[in-house]
Design a protein around this nucleic acid. Structure first.
Lengths: 192, 192
DNA sequence: CCCACTATACCGACCGGACGGTTGACAAAC
DNA sequence: GTTTGTCAACCGTCCGGTCGGTATAGTGGG
């Protein structure tokens, strides 16, 4: 059964894809309007027709990234069985259940994130909102105070370590860390 | 009792200080050779006499940063009482005992870090070594596997959250989080 | 059906400015 | 008189953004 090949994406999408590819492959500095245009198969003028400035391009990139992150987390959350600390456990799954394939996508996300921050920290606002929303839901988990925060921070730290090439954690260390954090995700932990 | 005012720093130091100030105050993009020179009170040629290229300037910045981070951690570690998980507890103290004054310094460190990463990720190597060393010592703490890692990752995540303006954690949340992590820093935790 | 007009999508040459780096001169120190 | 530190002027390049133009596809009047 052949899948119908997806229709060719429209120009703005193609341009955003191209920009992402460049940022991921050759770094923030390589993202110029010309390069993005060429990679997308349009002229610089064509690119600027859809994104009126570099900032607009970055904003587009960030908006899409925020949407994707939100959707990804939602999917992980939906896959979690009911539990008093469901959101917290979703974060754990999100952090550790990463099929290796996704790593590339995370690298891309990080590259976009950093590119945007580099240009103007305010561009991160869409993502900030996504995470603020997650944090709000986290607060409703029936966990001792601080546990959910610790788990989330640890996930973020792991993510950062990967992004900046600070850790190369082996599977064993990763599993141990996950186990330790999972023990924090037990409602009323520590007082049977 | 008046402290003897420190002798005026030499030119390379003045230049590095100036570059740091610029990166912190006006972002990565604002760090140009001209701007750094002007801020340091020398001409561009004068700057290039001491740092032959922008990359050299960034390498200098990063080297100094790595030294300072290492020294700072060492100081925190020395202040810790003997304990089976001394290194781990030093990390906790490092993360949470932050007198507010230091926050500014951390912002500066992060700005330098990001500027370097932006130019060339390989410039981060000196810092990578510092953290690799800390991680190695962490492994010698008598803690259940994963606990020290979790604590370190949480610290990193908190740091990242602050850098990118993702969290604004209140003191209460911070204290709760610290308490949760501190419970992980107890040797043989969980099995009396 | 044809024509005039308009809107959409795109092109690529060009401009202005910034930035990294070079050069040659110069003065004080040794 | 050579070395050391500093300067100002300059150069080539690159990049973001502008602009005049083109091709295609409607749209409405006659």
């Amino acid at each position: 059964m052949l899948e119908r090949p997806p229709p060719p994406p429209d120009a703005p999408t193609r341009i955003l894809d191209a920009a992402e590819r460049i940022v991921q492959a050759r770094g923030v500095t390589a993202l110029t309007l010309e390069a993005a245009a060429r990679e997308a198969g349009v002229s610089k003028g064509g690119l600027l027709y859809h994104f009126a400035s570099k900032e607009a391009l970055l904003a587009g990139l960030l908006g899409r990234l925020a949407d994707r992150v939100a959707a990804e987390f939602e999917a992980v959350l939906d896959a979690q069985p009911p539990h008093l600390a469901r959101t917290t456990r979703a974060i754990l799954a999100w952090t550790f259940d990463d099929p290796h394939m996704v790593c590339e996508q995370h690298q891309r996300a990080a590259a976009v994130f950093l590119a945007a921050f580099h240009h103007d920290p305010a561009l991160l606002d869409p993502i900030r909102r996504v995470f603020a929303d997650i944090r709000a839901r986290l607060r409703q988990d029936a966990l001792p105070p601080g546990h959910a925060l610790a788990i989330m921070a640890a996930g973020d730290g792991l993510f950062m370590g990967r992004i900046f090439g600070m850790y190369e954690m082996d599977a064993e260390g990763l599993a141990a860390m996950r186990a330790a954090l999972e023990r924090l995700a037990v409602p009323q932990a520590g007082s049977p």
